[in-house]
Every structure is written in C-alpha cells, then in structure tokens.
Amino acid sequence: MIKTIRRIPVAHYSNLKARTGYSIRLDDKEIALFKVSNGRVYALENRSPHPKGGVLSEGLVSGEYVYCPVYDWKISLVDGKVQEPDNGQVRTYKIEIEKDVVFIVL
C-alpha cells in the first residue's frame, strides 16, 4: 500500500507569536502549534500524556519545551518526550514553512 502524504496549510508564519501555543483541528486530530524564540515552529498532539490530560497549547513555553498547564510536566517540542522524573510522550508532526505559510505534513 502506498501512503499518501498530505501537506496542509495551517497558519501564516508572520501571525504566530513566539512562546505562544495555538490549537488547530485537522480531521479528528487536535494539534498544538508553537513558535519558539529562535523562530522555529513545532507541532504536537494537543494533549498531555498524563492520564488525566491537559491542553498543551495553553502551557508555558520555555526554550524548546512546553509545560503542561495542569500537571507541570516538561515536554520537548522537538521529540514530544516528557522529561524526567515524569515519563511519557506525545506525537509530534513535521512542519514545513514556505514563504509565509506554515504546513503540517501528515
């Protein structure tokens, strides 16, 4: 089976504020977009891996990490891994930026 790659425009790069999370919905997925201080953009599943959840787009961004707003878990925006002493992982999504358009690649 050949997997079809979808490249979906989700935001204008110039409209994204650094260190702020944005929630978007694609099909049945809720995704959090983050633009960090160095200008890079990351996308990950918009739910903390904690059993009771937490909306990551509402979390505090520091460097290339987001802190779950409910449980204060530190989660890498690069690979979605929860930092010790906690554990878990959220799904990350590939981002491409062309001109002023941010795309998520599914």
Rank of each mutant, 00 (worst) to 15 (best):
D86R: 11
D27N: 14
L60G: 00
S76K: 09
V70D: 00
R19T: 07
V10N: 12
V70C: 00
V102T: 05
P51N: 02
S48W: 06
L56D: 08
P69Y: 00
K17C: 03
I104R: 14
D72T: 05
R47N: 06
D86F: 14
L33A: 06
L16W: 01
N87Y: 11
H50K: 03
G39M: 04
G59E: 03
V36K: 05
P51M: 01
Y65H: 14
Y93V: 01
R7G: 06
G53N: 02
V78R: 14
Y71D: 10
K74I: 02
E30N: 12
Y13I: 02
I75R: 05
L44E: 03
S57N: 03
H12Q: 13
R40F: 01
S14A: 07
E98A: 08
V55C: 09
N87D: 11
L106N: 09
E96P: 05
K81G: 05
G39W: 09
V101Q: 14
D72H: 13
S76F: 03
Y65V: 06
S23I: 02
Y67E: 05
K74G: 07
P9I: 10
D100G: 06
V66N: 06
H50C: 02
S57D: 07
G54K: 02
V61P: 05
K17M: 07
L26S: 03
D72Q: 14
Y67L: 13
V90W: 09
G59Q: 01
G53V: 01
K29G: 00
V102I: 07
M1L: 03
D28N: 15
D72L: 12
G21N: 08
V78A: 12
I8C: 03
K35E: 01
L26Y: 10
L33T: 02
V66E: 02
R25K: 15
K52P: 00
F103C: 04
W73G: 03
G63S: 11
Y93M: 10
L26R: 09
V78T: 14
T20Y: 13
L56C: 08
D100Y: 05
T92D: 00
I104M: 13
